[in-house]
Write a protein that binds this DNA or RNA. Structure first.
Length: 406
RNA sequence: GGAGGGGUGGGUGAGUGGUUAAUACCAACAGACUGUAAAUCUGUCGCCUGGAAAGGCUACGUAGGUUCGAAUCCUACCCCCUCCA
């Protein structure tokens, strides 16, 4: 029984374990382990891609282990070694603190706060001198750094690599030494950095940490790993209907991995779902709805999940109007006129949707009009000037609405 | 320090004096189709004014200059890459 649970703990939602046998014996020893998880406070929002690892952390906590959360206030300044702009605006101390707070608020939605210690890199890098830097860097060679795929690819492609970027893995590795990490958690893309941690710990006479590397969750575009910069992410802090809608928009092929990586459903249920997806008789939509409910429940609650589902069914599937809409006062419009003898206002619809913020510019509004993407009270709009009444509902595209008020 | 190459719209990447708000592809958006999504087809894709025709403004690393006219030529500066030392 215990064996089986351990199996699921180390297998489901895990891409790679280094070194598995050592990790198993650590876990079996009954010792409380120090689990390292770092984050970059320049990007404070947690999305489902991060959740994969955080869930794993929380599972370990339930077994009595302790999380050491590292606020990467120094590495954040160097910048994650990817992307082409080398210079990066330095964050002010306040920004870092604010970001860290935002991050932790979301972090503790998943991870148990009671069993977590928060450490800031500046606690040890604050008075790290040049002699320390020299000592640290002398332990590694450029060839070792270039062994990392990110770097070697960029190097071969003739793209810039800042010298400080080579420092990034070393700082991260040093964190492991300071906190005496037993196990480091991270995405599989962190493998290199985490391995450097192992190496440095060994050099410094510590027992090297074990690594638990999570697979990368594919984003809503169905092609790339979920990330903020690609805008294919689902944030845990987003409102229920957003999360629900975004989950429904993932390609069908992703349903399985989302169930596996970001929900708590049992292994048994997981197998069932897998089977249903494999058979032709089940419409994937229903399973995806279930998935969306599970996920919304996790970050909000089941009530919110139900409402989000109703909203989705109504607005997206039945192309109906949602219950509560933002309101916009037509008296703000410059083009407002009253025809003779009528108390119904006439306005320029392109101005209306631009000014109310449904579209980003007047030009875009005109485009939408000419493409037949604007509806008022269920009628497609073809004319620029339209007559409104109070309570008219203006719809742009699939799901942008505004309700007119005086 | 020397020699050479390069910086273009969200991304990749054409364009070497006017026909270029800038080819193409990707992404994105809208419409059709669809009981989710995908796929497919059609269209759009800097900002402002205008019903439209059209006009104006801003934009090709930064700052100046030449020219009737510049992403394209000149000067300076900033940044990146390669090779040599």
């Amino acid at each position: 029984m215990a064996k089986k649970r351990l199996g699921s703990l180390l297998k489901r939602g895990v891409a790679e374990t280094i070194v598995e046998s050592e990790l198993v014996s650590l876990l079996e020893s009954g010792k409380s382990l120090r689990l390292k998880q770092g984050f970059d406070p320049s990007r404070p929002d947690i999305h489902l891609g991060h959740v994969v690892g955080l869930k794993k952390l929380s599972q370990f906590q339930k077994l009595g282990h302790e999380v050491i959360l590292i606020v990467g206030d120094w590495t954040a300044q160097i910048g994650d070694p990817s992307g082409q702009s080398v210079t990066r605006s330095m964050l002010s101390a306040e920004e870092v603190r604010a970001n860290a707070e935002t991050y932790m608020k979301q972090f503790f939605k998943i991870v148990d706060k009671e069993k977590t210690q928060v450490k800031w890199q500046s606690e040890w890098f604050g008075d790290f001198g040049l002699d320390d830097v020299v000592k640290l860097t002398s332990k590694f060679t450029v060839a070792q750094m270039l062994a990392r795929e990110d770097f070697s690819k960029r190097y071969e492609a003739g793209r810039p690599i800042a010298v400080t970027e080579l420092l990034y893995p070393l700082l991260q590795a040093y964190d492991s030494v300071v906190i005496e990490s037993d196990v480091e958690f991270g995405g599989i893309d962190q493998k290199f950095n985490c391995l450097v941690g192992r190496e440095l710990q060994e050099i410094m006479g510590q027992k090297p940490q074990q690594l638990l590397l999570m697979p990368l969750l594919v984003g809503t575009d169905g092609a790339n790993k979920m990330s903020k910069s690609l805008d294919n992410y689902i944030g845990v802090d987003e409102p229920p209907w957003e999360i629900y809608g975004k989950v429904m928009s993932i390609p069908d092929e992703l349903i399985i991995s989302y169930f596996e990586l970001v929900t708590d459903i049992s292994d048994k249920e997981f197998e069932e779902i897998k089977q249903q997806l494999g058979s032709e008789s089940t419409n994937p939509m229903f399973l995806k709805k279930r998935l969306a409910r599970e996920i919304v429940t996790q970050f909000h609650n089941s009530q919110a999940a139900r409402e989000a589902e109703e909203h989705f069914t109504k607005v997206v599937q039945h192309k109906d109007v949602p219950d509560d809409l933002p309101e916009f006062s037509f008296s703000l419009l410059r083009s407002l006129r009253f025809q003779d003898g009528s108390d119904l206002p006439t306005v320029d619809v392109t101005e209306l949707i631009a000014v109310s913020g449904l579209v980003s510019s007047r030009g875009e509004a005109k485009r939408f009009l000419s493409q037949g993407a604007i509806e008022i009270d269920g009628e497609k709009v073809t004319e620029t000037y339209i007559t409104l009444r109070e309570g008219s509902i203006v719809k742009v595209g699939k799901r942008r609405f505004v309700k007119m008020v005086k």
